[in-house]
Design a binder for these strands. Sequence first.
DNA 1: CGGGCAGTTGACCCCGCTCAAGCGCGGTGG
DNA 2: CCACCGCGCTTGAGCGGGGTCAACTGCCCG
Lengths: 233, 233
Amino acid sequence: MTIKNEIPNCEYCFVKNDIFRHLTKDETDVLAYVKNCNTYKKGETIYSENNRVAGVYCINEGIVKHYKTGTEGKEQIIRFSKKGDIFGFRSIISGDLACTTAKVIEESTICIIPATHFIKLIKDNSGFAMSVMKLSCKELGFANKYILDIAQKNVRERLAEILLLLHTNFGVNPNNYLKISLTREELAGIVGTATESVIRLLSEFKKDKLIELDKRQIKLLDITKLKRISESY
Amino acid sequence: MTIKNEIPNCEYCFVKNDIFRHLTKDETDVLAYVKNCNTYKKGETIYSENNRVAGVYCINEGIVKHYKTGTEGKEQIIRFSKKGDIFGFRSIISGDLACTTAKVIEESTICIIPATHFIKLIKDNSGFAMSVMKLSCKELGFANKYILDIAQKNVRERLAEILLLLHTNFGVNPNNYLKISLTREELAGIVGTATESVIRLLSEFKKDKLIELDKRQIKLLDITKLKRISESY
DNA sequence: CGGGCAGTTGACCCCGCTCAAGCGCGGTGG
DNA sequence: CCACCGCGCTTGAGCGGGGTCAACTGCCCG
């Protein structure tokens, strides 16, 4: 982790998350003053499960994975954060320790808002509070949906769903391959299955012309069919 | 659903959830005035998945289950609410439709705070807002944990865990049986498995003297061992 | 008395996990 | 520069957890 010399300016920050639009000019200025900014290399851990979280993180650039570690040491990826997303607020607000580990999977520039200041903003600015609340409620909605999926869909259906999710959340490169690049093991960690199962299913999808594979890159060829699979028709 | 004639008085309501302690006397009075109160019989649906939610519900008495319905029509129970709990706020705050169905499993008396009034309280009272936020963040923490469990634990481990959870959340009757009474199918709907699997495992637990069964009633005999099972030792 | 639902048990079998072996590639050290 | 190592990926074999289907029971209620 390196401390950035040119810190993104909050007022003009182009990735500005919706929640910050509720801040007054003054509040934005103070925020820009009290916040910190670091860059992280791929593989660096921002915070670990069951540890205290320093503050609320706001991604200026890069991708972060959030995962829990199971009894056998297997990672279960809960979600990703990307440019413009904030994270770490669950722990700050609930007062609990981190319930996930946050690890950088693509070189990132991330600003840190000290916990106390974040709480102060919530107390002072009800619009800000409201949109943080919205965020956590949206996340809760996703989590509930994922519980249903893991409990009732089979691995094939879930993998198709995850591919579509990665597609809509991260988009594609000019060559039409998914922008996010994950190891097979990480894919397995999202879907909640064994690495070998992901590999077998990916090559099956490839055989069925649903996707194209080039090393770690994935291109979705038939979104309609993938959707149908993910909805277990 | 019947409209109650004697409405619980908010000011002296003994089940008062923490979040309401932040309200001023005036706010409490207004709340008591604008809220509504109904009783629901076992099996009644308060609201359904993908429908608009009328307001935020506060349970004065009874138990409510929250579930999502899978593609095959199978219920996945996400959580329960009991005396003193509030629910429905996720949908009100995020502005989405309900992501679960709320159904009464034990005759309930439930107050309803109109959505607009609930939002107003959040805007006006930052302490109130903060504790609603805490609530949703806590729920998010539980949901994340459950994703890990369903993804990585086997059915036996999950069932043991759920039994312990029901024990701590609902407690026991004087006869030491769990206070909450669920059908085998509902148990399966929590654990995320088939009804037959729950039945087989329950009788296995019984054989191993971990629990005692009497119809729908369950008594935990060896909490230590159940814990060990749930943690996959 | 009969219908229906919750619960139970047995039989069967398939999905997906585990283990093992082999491959390709990039990095490192001699 | 090459040899080696290790990691990520791939494929095959095998098997067991748990899902499905079917049949039966007991109980509640009309």
